[in-house]
Design a protein around this nucleic acid. Structure first.
Lengths: 213, 213
DNA sequence: TGCGTTATAGAACAGGCGTTCGAAACATGA
DNA sequence: TCATGTTTCGAACGCCTGTTCTATAACGCA
């Protein structure tokens, strides 16, 4: 990647500013005026250089057919995550049905990088209420990122739906002979034992986010 | 906000898909072909409706002058945060100089919503090494979001630079008569006492992010 | 039935816009 | 100094593109 000329850098940053303001790319003549160039062919020439050097991508014969490469890369790393409610001991989670996943209406949406969600699909978020998870280093008010799964490995922190009781809690999951042990992360609380038929896994915790004052 | 007609919804989602793929808006005739409309005036008509209803914004007499409103809102809520290194007891943090903030080259960048960073400027991130912060509910491997500040309130979790020792640690900050107490979050560790002249605050923790296996 | 509103359609206009070509200025290096 | 490649310039071509005008239904409402 060669070093850009002064004029090329000005063009590049103008395109960036233009996109920031308008959300669509400038025309060649927009660039011409902004960078005080006297001919469209000069702009065309320098845009070709910028494309050859990998800074932009051009679509031939298309008005405003300019795309910033780093902008595209950044956009592709982002995932919108719906925050769909709160969780606390004894309160049900309104877990979305897995079918209408894309169109769910969440009051809050957090955009996170794919590094955080590990590129997983079916990710949602819950706000934790109470200190029942302090031993899992999860505090009151934390946001837990959940992935929708229906099966869990031993020791994983999962949201489980207890059918008979009609409630959902966040516990560590252990499959034992003839029963399932749901271990609270808080050591002062007792484990819950449940029959396998009564337990429905609704998701596992894949990340924790906390904001401090 | 009235309910959109079938055709208007198709137009809206086509614009969205087009932007997703190309990163610049479609022309009226692009929409015409994609939505099987037989006249440009019909597209124009429906775009006007979409603008009146607040879904898009149009720039008059400008090719591809269409902007999705939610796209703009989303973009403005995002902030790129550089992950600039690791922190552990006895290791220095490479805190960036506050002057060349915008142009720093970080190995890793996390994009976060402004809700997370609280819209603050000068935010960076550190990866935590070791369990010295377990009592602050911060685990080994967690990412702490830091805001660059040079002064701290009592009790805040801050990164401090000990000039004489030439090292940086993450501790709770307490100003005491004639000295500063740096309290480890881990209760098994002893506090450090330092002279005020020897202490330089380099940032405070504003959020914690953890990924689980 | 008549009337205003909404939605669709076709066509044409005028300026927008990317492209191309010839020429010249400029820098680089043998 | 000459040759070569880079960069700039002005102008013109021709398709692209938003706009506008007129016409035609479809629909609700009185």
């Amino acid at each position: 990647m060669k070093t850009l000329s002064d004029r090329q850098q000005r063009i590049l940053s103008f395109i960036r500013d233009f996109l920031e303001e308008k959300d669509y790319p400038p025309t060649i003549r927009d660039i011409l005026k902004a960078c005080q160039i006297s001919s469209t062919s000069v702009v065309d020439y320098n845009l070709d250089v910028l494309e050859r050097e990998g800074y932009i991508r051009r679509d031939a014969e298309v008005s405003r057919g300019i795309e910033l490469q780093d902008r595209r890369r950044r956009r592709e790393r982002l995932v919108p995550v719906p925050v769909i409610g709160r969780i606390a001991a004894g309160e049900p989670i309104p877990v979305p049905a897995p079918d209408n996943w894309s169109m769910l209406a969440a009051a809050e949406v957090v955009e996170l990088s794919q590094e955080l969600t590990r590129g997983q699909e079916k990710v949602y978020a819950l706000r934790v209420k109470g200190t029942s998870l302090v031993d899992a280093l999860i505090d009151d008010g934390d946001i837990v990122l959940m992935q929708y799964v229906t099966a869990a490995e031993n020791g994983e922190l999962v949201a489980v739906w207890l059918k008979a009781e009609g409630e959902v809690t966040l516990k560590r999951f252990y499959r034992e002979p003839g029963r399932i042990r749901l271990q609270p992360a808080n050591s002062q609380m007792q484990p819950i034992y449940a029959e396998p038929a009564n337990v429905e896994v609704q998701g596992k915790v894949i990340a924790v986010v906390r904001q401090l004052g």
